[in-house]
Design a protein around this nucleic acid. Sequence first.
DNA 1: GGCGCCGCAAGAGCACTGCTCTCGTTTCGG
DNA 2: CCGAAACGAGAGCAGTGCTCTTGCGGCGCC
Lengths: 230, 230
Amino acid sequence: MSGLRARVRAELTAEIKRLARAQMEAQGPNDLNLRAIARELGMVSSAVYRYFASRDELLTALIIDAYDELGRTAEDADAGCDPADTVGRFVTVATAIYRWARTSPSQYLLLFGTPVPGYAAPIDTVAAAIRVTTVLQHILDEAGRQGATPAVAPIVPPTVQPDLATVRALTDSTVSDQLLLTGLQSWTAMFGAITFILNGQFRNVVGDVDALFGAFADLLARQVIGARHD
Amino acid sequence: MSGLRARVRAELTAEIKRLARAQMEAQGPNDLNLRAIARELGMVSSAVYRYFASRDELLTALIIDAYDELGRTAEDADAGCDPADTVGRFVTVATAIYRWARTSPSQYLLLFGTPVPGYAAPIDTVAAAIRVTTVLQHILDEAGRQGATPAVAPIVPPTVQPDLATVRALTDSTVSDQLLLTGLQSWTAMFGAITFILNGQFRNVVGDVDALFGAFADLLARQVIGARHD
DNA sequence: GGCGCCGCAAGAGCACTGCTCTCGTTTCGG
DNA sequence: CCGAAACGAGAGCAGTGCTCTTGCGGCGCC
């Protein structure tokens, strides 16, 4: 096992993914071109199929890698924070996610952009996707333990209560329905803002989008963790 | 002018767009297939180019139409509201937008999904895009006139103040920077939530996404229009 | 060590795409 | 009424994802 052949294979697999990422970064996340990758590798297109059975399979591998990078980015950012400062943690993690998204927009859009046509995310991606939300949820858990209450109390629809319960179970926390629902809202708002900025939806409207996102992140954190009564 | 030929041309143009929309709805917004449209029309592919010079031009036309539909949807929803009930107006408009997005997801994603590769939205689309935001801004203006204040006061970065000023000028309103920034945040949060739901990001997490969105909309409205001191 | 198997790259080829060009025909407007 | 413009058909070009066959090379087993 682990002969020369296996090593070469691993290297080539990584190289293909690297080139694929570079290509997406250069010309949008949607037109991943197997033949161009093969060309850059000095191979013929059919040879690439020895490493990835199809374009979708390569895409899946890239998605998993991206989820992992995103998760690691969030974890690293959170690790450098004062654990008790939940507002600071949220802002720090949000900023780190935003920076990563700006650095490699095509990878971010691979995860949160429009899914490619006919592509159904395999189960493999789910595990990788949980990582970043776990970080966010841990912050929420800590806030809950500190007795935090959202600035505006949401109305929790009865039909989503079971869903909240399963989400809560992921980190076996004890946050209230209201805090959890507000947290969910803030997370989608954060990812939504990043997607908006990346897609250029604020073009010709807001110049300093970095500052805008910073203001959003701060606002979101304080909307979720509004008051603390012990 | 307006001879038989012109009428046939207008009809065929509309028919091409109709088929394009149907095709997108059937198999994702990204693979708009000119040849398939020509086939369904009983024409040869080159004939379609008499009506749209390129795939991008057809796409642009569809985008403008979609922005118009979205704007009209928002306007109609707002028209049926008590003008003074700003929270109710926001929730009503948001719900109408959400319903439209669920009805024709590919059209919504055409506007708020990942832009197609290499496609730069022409100026024509900008005018159409303003319509829906104008509705939302009018609601915010009314709230401002009533002396509303956001539930959590945002920190307004100095660099975005001029941007806020230009946004404010669009409806020559007098809302405060804080209210306007919070409004901007709520709008991106709303569109972000819809995009999340449409992209299936909540799959296997939340079952009743309709109820979830309703809760989000209500929460957002009350976060923006928090207190009123006259 | 040798041998057979399997991984590998190459090349041709299929069905498809967006788009261009040419060529008769039809329709409109001065 | 007649030339110009608009139109549809068809062939064709360059490109795509993917398949199949054909040799060549490293690998493990006896």
